[in-house]
Design a protein around this nucleic acid. Sequence first.
DNA 1: AAGTGGTCTAGACCACTAT
DNA 2: TAGTGGTCTAGACCACTTA
Lengths: 249, 249
Amino acid sequence: MGRPRYLRVADALRVPILDGALPPGARLPSRAQLARRHEVSEQVSRNALRLLIAEGLVESRPGSGYYVREVPESYRFARTDRFSGSLLRPLAGEDRDTITRPACDRMAERLGIGEGEPLYRTRCVGTAGGAPVAVHTSWEPAVLTHNTTRAPGDADAETGVLERLAAAGVVIDRVVEEVAVLPLTEPEAVLLRLAPGAPVLVVERTHYSGQRPVETSDLVAVVERCRLSYRLSLARTPAGGGPRPDPHR
Amino acid sequence: MGRPRYLRVADALRVPILDGALPPGARLPSRAQLARRHEVSEQVSRNALRLLIAEGLVESRPGSGYYVREVPESYRFARTDRFSGSLLRPLAGEDRDTITRPACDRMAERLGIGEGEPLYRTRCVGTAGGAPVAVHTSWEPAVLTHNTTRAPGDADAETGVLERLAAAGVVIDRVVEEVAVLPLTEPEAVLLRLAPGAPVLVVERTHYSGQRPVETSDLVAVVERCRLSYRLSLARTPAGGGPRPDPHR
DNA sequence: AAGTGGTCTAGACCACTAT
DNA sequence: TAGTGGTCTAGACCACTTA
């Protein structure tokens, strides 16, 4: 009774899609067919299909029909704790580009330095299947590797931050990552070929050496095609020592 | 010309919302008023408003009107590695609810058990400022704590999985979290009071005891209101042992 | 040429809110 | 009681794909 008809029609399609009876690529009945079959108006079948589209299960091809959506291959960012060399797997198909800029107030705060201090900013675009899927932008105080052969631009693309800075005598022992979904802003929108305002997955990451932040970065990733995969160890230190857990309240 | 009318009506509302001329909480013209003002049918103003709702700019209050959405304070989920008692800070304002169900194929796979084996499913809704912000659903093989006082329903809400299962003799030493942004589906949509299809932040988490998965859960969180905060240690275990400094400070 | 999805019009009923 | 949003019906035209 109370349940709106378009939800019932949507249910009738969602079930076979989710259990595989309607596999990806399969064509759904047309609006008119659905309307006849469920004895509803065409608007009702429209609403049902629109809902399934919004849920990401169905796509429409104008002039052709509604189809079960192919699940897009997703790009997985692997993150782990202490046993990992670099939390961020190097992006494939990258064009790395390093420049020197004075710290803006936001970066000065994230890196705990003075505004205007020189930073290396490194940016690269990750692609998968020809399409850009993520933009990674990293900022690092120039003072750390200035006049060494370990500046961001010197290292080859496969070298992680941890190795590079370790070689420069900076030991990274801690990382903080903030994950959020934010509206896409203009500069990244161009690189990702998306409309500004589209939701994107953002990871703000900061590497620390003791109390001191030594590198910070933003990963801006296309929502539909990216996943983060955290693999974390929870084993207590074998020796009976070990301080009590800090639950970060 | 070609631009559909409902997009033009939506534009006419989006501009004043984004530049603050229509502040959060402001009431928009009703469907009928919009239709008259723009000389379109009421369905067109309906479509325009539905688009703005999907964009997260507007909310509807049935019987009352359409309003510019209040931008909510965000809720932070703290995650850490081995020093944390529970990765997921207990949700505030929770209504915990535990039932016993046979494992569906998806859960059987995640938990590495046979389809149909009994599971405890625990669900709670996290709220902030009165509004639901996340749904956490956890699945755990009943065999682990069956006939003990450590089943999910027995523990008080503040006890984390790690402590509870440890008390039942199951030592969790590893966790894998998959973070993605997915379209919201119907069952969670009701709990979160959101439209199905809205993007939500999803964390699929699995706790392991050695190679064996012992608990898995889905956290479905409202995108605009939730952040994940990972604090991870990268320090190698020092050979000498001794009490380790807390790396999360 | 027929079918399809995208859009649009012009009505309607219901449950709910505001007054 | 009047207004509102949510849903629904029964039509229609257009651009596009398919055969």
